[in-house]
Computed example of a mutant assay.
Amino acid sequence: MKKVFYSLLATSILAMGAQELKAQTRYRTALGLGIDVGDGPTLVGPQIKHFFDGQNAGNAQVLFGDDVTVLGVDYSYNQAIRGANGLSWYVGVGPQLTFINHGRWHSGHWDGDNHTDVAIRPAVGLEFKIPTAPLAFHFDWKPWWNLSHDSDFEPARFTLGFKFTLK
């Protein structure tokens, strides 16, 4: 009888743990469009977010603007907000490479300043996954801390994201 009881108890605990994990992982992977706005150029491009488990995720994006291309990856810790179905908060950080092309073709050669910047971008934001549809949206504060070539810190940067979620 003890074996049956312990087997049922173990099975119940595993089932509850799986349900908890499923509730925290609103989706596994999402593809979408990211928009980076604030002081400086507006950047737009594709992004992908992938959950490694219930709370830890990676996000990669390629953003384009006037004479600028940004390649970035981020780690984020995500937590559901109790009582708000589909709404979660997250914090994260990640490196960004910014390829800047201020050059112009003139008289058979390039004029201007072409360079690559390295930046670190922390993020604090909210994400909403529509419970009944495969869509998610996010808004975050994502300041830009440039570590190279005229190092500076730009606090007035924000991102918006529109994603199609996959299981």
Rank of each mutant, 00 (worst) to 15 (best):
V70C: 04
H115N: 02
V68S: 05
G161D: 11
S148C: 05
N101E: 14
G94E: 08
Q24I: 06
P95S: 10
R121T: 11
F137I: 09
L14Q: 10
Q79C: 05
L14H: 04
S88E: 08
T159Q: 10
H115D: 01
P46C: 09
F5W: 08
R104P: 04
D152G: 13
S12C: 10
K163D: 15
G94L: 03
Q24V: 07
P41V: 11
F139H: 04
W145H: 01
A80G: 14
A18W: 04
P134M: 00
P41L: 00
L97N: 03
T165I: 09
L31D: 05
P41K: 09
R104L: 06
N85Q: 14
F51H: 13
G34W: 00
H102T: 06
A156L: 07
M1C: 06
P131Y: 00
G17Y: 06
K167G: 15
W89Q: 08
A60R: 01
G34R: 08
A136K: 01
Y90P: 01
L33W: 02
A18Y: 03
V44G: 10
G83V: 08
Q55K: 08
V62E: 04
H106W: 04
G112V: 12
S148G: 07
V37D: 04
T159E: 08
W145A: 15
H109T: 13
W141S: 12
K163T: 11
A30D: 12
F64G: 09
N78L: 10
L126Q: 02
P131N: 07
P131H: 02
G32S: 04
W89A: 14
